[in-house]
């Protein structure tokens, strides 16, 4: 026999306990990384569902592959072979240039850059919060994926990993309003921050003065400041430069080069190990600021706001300091 009336007080009490637990979880999740282990475990629990949700799309692709005609396949193979030949030819040139670059860097006593390790991953066709720009990739911490890792596709930077589960990981795209990426204009070297607008085909470049030399079509590349993204990856092209008289900065809109809403295959990048080690060393000195970045409000920009703590910045400080006070004493020392 079931009781006719439930004990309403017990329900209320249980709700209050759960509410308190939720609030504690939210605060912990928002403030720092304490609950990342919990999230990772839950990620593992829902990974089968994520793969299941991806199945219809994958099945559709498989069917499409199966019904492709022999001729179409042959044509595609021919195209790919040509593409491969073109890329190999360019690779040869690249190898020569790299050897030359290494030699020159040795002459200058500068550390030569190593290759970046990359891993091909696929985006799972899984829907997330429709009001944010995120994606799920089919690789996780089992493959070495970590929170804060850069993600690129064939054409440009896509975003960064924000949560890594064992089998899958969440990627925050550069078009999310929460994402900020330290970039520079390739033509002029003007450094700025690229921030998302919540739409896949537009991002905004912040803090550009009205008088700056910006033209439509300018290539925007990562600057490497902030230490999270390797430098010189293409990000976007400037689509509109609208000076706003009376305000401090102009409105600059750029179009991302990566196919944020169409790419299926992406590359996970492990940035140069030297840089990584340097960043870790600096991160230890600067406290947890760098490591705590992924869940803060502006992931890429948090380290950028204080360029003195990032790896590439120290190289620039002497250059700007020379015309000031530092140069004369140094010159005097060297003269005798």
């Amino acid at each position: 026999m079931q009781p006719l009336f439930q004990n309403a007080g017990a329900t209320t009490l249980r709700f209050l306990l759960l509410a308190a637990l939720s609030i504690a979880l939210m605060v912990a999740d928002h403030r720092d990384q304490y609950v990342e282990a919990v999230r990772s475990a839950l990620f593992a629990a829902i990974a089968p569902l994520q793969y299941a949700a991806d199945l219809p799309v994958r099945g559709g692709e498989w069917v499409a592959d199966q019904v492709t005609t022999h001729q179409a396949l042959q044509q595609r193979v021919t195209e790919l072979e040509r593409e491969n030949l073109r890329l190999s030819a360019r690779q040869q040139q690249f190898e020569t240039l790299r050897a030359e670059n290494d030699r020159l860097r040795n002459l200058l006593d500068a550390a030569s850059k190593r290759d970046e390790r990359v891993l091909v991953a696929e985006l799972l066709a899984v829907d997330l919060d429709p009001f944010r720009q995120q994606a799920i990739v089919n690789q996780g911490s089992r493959a070495g994926v970590y929170a804060g890792q850069p993600v690129i596709d064939a054409d440009g930077v896509m975003g960064q990993v924000v949560h890594a589960g064992p089998f899958t990981a969440t990627v925050l795209l550069i078009s999310d309003p929460d994402h900020a990426l330290p970039v520079q204009l390739n033509r002029t070297g003007l450094r700025t921050v690229a921030s998302g607008l919540g739409e896949a085909d537009r991002i905004s470049l912040l803090y550009i003065p009205n008088s700056a030399d910006v033209e439509e079509g300018d290539l925007v590349v990562t600057s490497g400041l902030g230490g999270r993204f390797p430098a010189n990856y293409p990000v976007a092209r400037v689509a509109a430069f609208n000076p706003r008289p009376g305000e401090a900065f102009a409105e600059v809109i750029a179009q991302p080069l990566a196919n944020l809403d169409r790419s299926r295959e992406v590359l996970l990048v492990w940035p140069d190990e030297d840089e990584e080690a340097a960043r870790r060393a600096l991160g230890d000195e600067a406290g947890i600021e760098l490591e705590g970045a992924p869940t803060t409000d502006v992931p890429g920009a948090a380290p950028d706001a204080s360029p003195g703590t990032t790896a590439p910045a120290p190289a620039e400080d002497p250059a700007t300091a020379i015309p000031d006070d530092e140069a004369p004493p140094a010159a005097e020392e060297f003269e005798p």
């Binding site: 709700f15 759960l18 509410a19 637990l21 939720s22 609030i23 504690a24 979880l25 939210m26 999740d29 928002h30 609950v35 919990v38 999230r39 839950l42 990620f43 629990a45 829902i46 569902l49 994520q50 899984v126 997330l128 919060d129 944010r132 995120q134 924000v162 949560h163 969440t170």
Partner: peptide
Amino acid sequence: LLDVSQGTLMGQHALGLA
């Protein structure tokens, strides 16, 4: 689980659902 799958703050949907 909804929070984790949606990429929202952990506890956000959980609180609403409770």
